[in-house]
């Protein structure tokens, strides 16, 4: 049995405009010692899954087990083996970094001396010395997030849950957070991570589940998913919009699937398997056909591309997030 096992999870919130199905029959299985990423846009149900598995929310239907413990029946036993760090850093701003971690240790019942020792150890390990002895308020988002993550690690949990660990961080803090997480899972901690970024899921996880509308719509390794949507995308920008049909034909010749033409009528794009080689051929064919370009290049597929491919629709961040917030409150 996998260390995280959830079946048929449903969660329905009532709202003024009728019931909202945050989760609609979600299954999840994470083998011990692996990293699983739940990838999806805002409102897809990622956070709700994490909240159910970490005992914060009761599902409307379904079952959830971690390490053989029934999370719904025995939340207290579940809480003894998990570490959780959320999207919004759950630190006490009025306390220092050290006091925050020490308090968490005491509430895990590590005892006074061990709680202090572990708090200091984490402060050193996460380079939080600056925030160690001063109240957390006034420190940057990245620093708070690190303290929050350290809070999740006070007991060296069997299972670690990270809900959007880098959302809202600047690129530098994001890279440093990735480094920390990679280091953490080296020793075989099971990690369930949610993210909106394909690249993040790719960097950190062994296995990805793509979530939409409260359900898993695709699953596999990052490579498998990428093969499904094409490894790279070649994008060309035309000088003359009239060249779009022949350009489309050329891109289609070297790409996987139908090329798309952007709303401006000049940007043509296609998924490709071997990026650099396809780009070379495409440029050479376009040159032969005498089509002039403003710009040409490759880009990595985004979550949007994954979604377009898998669901036929783009992500609907803004509207779904608004409903989610209103009803979850």
């Amino acid at each position: 049995m996998a260390i995280i096992e959830a079946e048929g999870l449903k969660k329905t919130y009532s709202s003024k405009s009728g019931p909202v199905h945050a989760l609609d029959g979600m299954n999840l299985s994470v083998p011990q010692g692996t990293v699983k990423a739940l990838l999806g846009p805002n409102g897809a149900g990622k956070t709700t899954v994490v909240k159910i598995l970490t005992t914060l929310v009761q599902p409307t239907a379904g079952s959830a087990h971690i390490d053989g413990i029934d999370v719904l029946r025995d939340p207290k036993a579940a809480r003894r083996i998990i570490g959780v760090s959320g999207q919004y850093a759950a630190v006490d701003e009025g306390l220092t970094g050290f006091e925050n971690l020490e308090m968490v240790g005491r509430l895990y019942h590590l005892g006074a001396r061990e709680s202090k020792r572990r708090a200091q150890e984490l402060i050193d390990q996460f380079e939080l010395t600056e925030a160690g002895n001063r109240p957390v308020k006034g420190f940057s988002g990245g620093m708070r997030r690190r303290i929050d993550l350290a809070g999740a690690l006070v007991i060296r949990p069997k299972i670690l849950f990270l809900d959007e660990p880098t959302t809202g961080l600047d690129p530098r803090s994001r890279l440093s957070m990735w480094g920390i997480i990679k280091e953490l899972v080296k020793d075989g901690t099971t990690l369930l991570l949610t993210t909106q970024y394909l690249e993040e899921a790719d960097q950190l996880s062994d296995d990805i589940a793509v979530i939409d509308g409260g359900r898993t719509i695709a699953a596999g390794t990052a490579d498998e998913l990428k093969a499904q949507i094409g490894g790279h995308r070649v994008v060309v920008s035309l000088v003359d919009a009239a060249d779009a049909p022949p350009a489309r034909e050329i891109l289609g010749r070297h790409g996987d699937g139908e090329p798309s033409v952007g709303g401006d009528g000049r940007t043509v794009e296609v998924a490709v398997t071997n990026g650099p080689r396809a780009l070379q051929y495409i440029l050479s064919d376009l040159g032969e056909a005498g089509i002039d370009l403003h710009d040409a290049g490759m880009r990595r597929p985004s979550l949007d591309d994954v979604f377009l491919k898998l669901t036929g629709h783009r992500t609907e961040d803004a509207s779904e997030e608004a409903t989610q917030k209103e009803t979850a409150a």
């Binding site: 207290k76 003894r80 083996i81 019942h109 005892g111 006074a112 007991i155 060296r156």
Partner: peptide, 30 residues
Amino acid sequence: APENRQPENRRSAIRGGTPEPPSELSMWFS
């Protein structure tokens, strides 16, 4: 403080989870 009643090998106990929980009453107090 409940720590006085906990097992001696606390260091190993915190790996992969917390030590055995204290009793309800002492947990309530602490």
